[in-house]
Amino acid sequence: MTNIIEARGLVKHYGEVKALDGLDVSVPEGTILGLLGPNGAGKTTAVSILTTLTSADAGSATVAGADVFSSPGEVRKRIGLSGQYAAVDEHLTGFENLDMIGRLYRLGKVTSRQRARELLDRFDLADAADRPVKTYSGGMRRRLDLAGALVAETPVLFLDEPTSGLDPRSRIELWAIIGELVARGTTLLLTTQYLEEADRLADDILVIDHGKAIAHGTANRLKDMVGGERIEVTVGDHDLSNARSVMSTFSLGEMQVDERNRHLVVPVSGGAAALTQALRSLDGAGVEVRDVMLRRPTLDDVFLTLTGHAAEEEESVEELV
């Protein structure tokens, strides 16, 4: 299988900050790569370089057979980009935006118009097609922006955090649309800080942190890297230390303990049998169990194991500031 996107050793500095530190990316034809990482990991920088918006300090990259640095014009003909901030003109109507993009891809007048109407229909924007984008909701703008990336039916698509900041319903709608695209064989590079999104959409996940790849594989393979199931248990007010010593006998690795919420995450093996046993032991030790569950590892666990911090923690810090 040939790689449609192939980058080697990308390095990018912004002043003192090393945004990318030797990143390799390869995406085989017709697959989706999820570039997963917290804010500031270098996801947008990587997309900016691969879409010719930004130069790199070192490294090489080709997209759909064209060299990103020596023939950026050729690359631009073969890609569609939808960014994390909706790149649409708010004074233009939805139709005018897509028509303009079609003209700039040089599709010609007739094709541009036809394509704009088609996409507006498909993205459920037909009713709002002739209203200025200013009057659109956030979800509608994102859909229009995504439609903009599809105008020329390019073989490669880059979607930079396509659903960040969207409400859950809009997010699910957008996921459905992205799912359809892939069914048509488009090659897609998707960045996200939502683990669920990468899990759901991507064939392959590249986890990056501080501008470097720290893991690569399918969602299942990444989950296997951090082991089997987990028991999550929440205990009564004075039972935490007791629960800790009981559960340590079941734990296959390091337990995560949240003291404030009296919550324990314990890596185990043996499934339901392990859960039954653990509950018996807790009961025997007089620990009040308020909530308990058995689950497969999530990408959150992967992240925590690989980086020592949660994927979305930096985002929540930013939100507090």
């Binding site: 879409t51 918006l53 980009l81 901030y85 909706a86």
Partner: peptide, 12 residues
């Protein structure tokens, strides 16, 4: 505005 990134990514 975000639109400029769109323009810069187009083969125009």
């Amino acid at each position: 505005k975000g639109i400029i990134n769109r323009f810069r990514s187009l083969p125009m």
